[in-house]
């Protein structure tokens, strides 16, 4: 019974959100984003360099993933 209530409430909440009845207003206005648009705030300024460093690490560590793209090949040697 409790599970059914949760499901009904979730469905209602989802419908309200999807229909735009609860639109979120941006709290950082577009004209306040000059600092965020500065290249020093980019997640990845140089994707080729990042992919190269990821490839070096993945060839020598057990961990992998969740950092962005990495190159192919085995790094077997």
């Amino acid at each position: 019974m409790r599970l059914r209530h949760i499901l009904v409430l979730s469905a209602l909440a989802g419908t309200v959100l999807l229909s735009g009845g609860c639109s979120i207003q941006p709290w950082v206005k577009p004209y306040e984003r000059d600092r965020l648009a500065d290249p020093i705030m980019a997640w990845d300024r140089d994707a080729i360099s990042s992919a190269y460093l990821d490839h070096i690490r993945e060839s020598r560590e057990g961990s992998r993933g969740a950092t962005g793209g990495a190159g192919g090949g085995c790094g077997c040697n």
């Binding site: 020093i40 705030m41 961990s63 992998r64 993933g65 969740a66 950092t67």
Partner: peptide, 23 residues
Amino acid sequence: AIQVQAKYYLPYRASVTGVYRYF
């Protein structure tokens, strides 16, 4: 793998980034 990262624009024109990944 899960990675969280944050980037902050300092009071002068410079930024600092922190990254943590769990695998």
